[in-house]
Design a protein around this nucleic acid. Structure first.
Lengths: 250, 250
DNA sequence: AAGTGGTCTAGACCACTAA
DNA sequence: TAGTGGTCTAGACCACTTA
């Protein structure tokens, strides 16, 4: 078959010509249309839907518009796309959930509470095995361990233990962190190009229980954050939240 | 000033003409370029970067390409964009973390373990206040409560308690859920158009402790999932994970 | 070899919003 | 009112993958 341009049927809709039943075809409307037809079971999970080309003709819009809509649906896990094969309705809607990880200051102020911060300890010491591995430190090198406490209306909201890669942070002074949390100091002074989060539940112990003002063993939601600048690990933070805390996504 | 077309300096690069120093300008390369200049502190947090127009001219590509790159950066929270104002380097890198929430079957098989599933209880009963609110049930209406257990290599991996909106699921039979978990049955039989996740830590209790084979009070990572079809709440599930479980994002 | 999605381009118009 | 990002379009070429 001869090679055809991407579009062929738009000639019925001359671009400058206002049409009495002119439809606004935004990529959002194409996305909504496709979602509705999936919802209505016109295309079943696992099935191929029409090509971009066909949808563009059917909906009377450019292929790029269909592409944008289907790309968004693929990003949400609603459809799966493969070259030469086509676009399928996802057989198993492996949903993705996006969590906002704001600065603690904003997280607390967003609840309407007054933000408070305290550094409870600062030491230069040998890292635990976990911290050494996380920061990729050479054997025998020391690191900085900071413990902090965040308050909402004066009550503990979260506490954290942060290991910092001392070699990568020559300019950091202890007193910098007395008013500014490590995460914020880092964001202002370094380009953090990569991050990784791990979420788990564990029992409060030691300083964590003390700083959160909960009994030892209380279940606490824990977030581990690992930050890099390019290939260099900068910080390994563990944040502990009081048991009533929730991470919400939509 | 007279209205100008979006692009004006491309005439130096006639499209068909292969250039000896021809640069491939993909939107990914534009994104990388912008990120690098942010990393190098050419533009500081909070500052405006050049307009799409200017970047397109400077990089020798179409504005649409710059737009795509900057849109991706905005989606990641690296920059913030506002019409008429321009594009700023985000002052506070409010990172977003995306979690994959696959079917339990895939989550377990992805670890290399053998998947197992059991329904441990099924009853039609009055919902708890939480469940009633979550499913927006009328006062006095009953709902379906299912408890299940997921096994990895025969050992408990996760257990869940699922409340289902009975009125919205006339076709559901008890025996359907003896081999297929509720989440999977729903995905196959209904279009779940909206979902919400809540993550918290709590102590294991009752059936949860039994089904996970952990002592009462053990910290368990809990995920609450609420699913809708359009505006109708369908299911309210709480999934409990053994303490060694981790949610990872990158 | 051929069919599908992925992307780039030049141009245009629109939507929002600060001045 | 004017300047910025947001989007659409028609066309084209490319990349990947199945057959």
């Amino acid at each position: 078959m001869a090679k055809l341009p991407d579009s062929l049927a738009r000639s019925l809709h001359p671009p400058g010509q206002a049409n009495s039943t002119r439809r606004m075809n935004t990529w959002q409307s194409v996305r909504a249309d496709v979602m509705e037809r999936i919802r209505a079971r016109e295309w079943l999970p696992g099935e191929l839907i029409p090509t971009e080309q066909e949808l563009a003709v059917e909906l009377g819009c450019a292929r790029a518009t269909v592409n944008r809509a289907l790309r968004e649906l693929a990003d949400s896990g609603i459809v799966e796309r493969r070259r030469k094969v086509g676009t399928r309705v996802a057989a198993t809607p492996s949903r993705r959930a996006t969590l906002e990880m704001p600065l603690m200051r904003h997280e607390i102020e967003a609840t309407g509470a007054t933000y408070g911060y305290r550094m409870t300890s600062y030491e230069i010491t040998m890292p635990t095995q976990l911290a050494q591995r996380a920061l990729q430190l050479e054997h025998g090198k020391q690191a900085i361990l900071i413990k902090t406490q965040f308050l909402a209306d004066g009550r503990p909201h979260c506490c954290e233990a942060v290991w910092l890669n001392a070699e990568a942070l020559p300019d950091l002074q202890r007193k910098d962190l007395e008013s500014l949390p490590p995460q914020e100091w880092l964001a202002r002074n370094l380009p953090l190009t990569r991050g990784k989060f791990t979420i788990l539940a564990q029992g409060a112990s030691g300083d964590c229980a003390t700083n959160l003002e909960v009994p030892e063993g209380t279940p606490v939601l824990t977030i581990e954050r690992l930050n890099w600048t390019d290939a260099t690990p900068i910080s390994y933070a563990r944040q502990f939240y009081r048991p009533e805390h929730r991470l919400v996504s939509e």
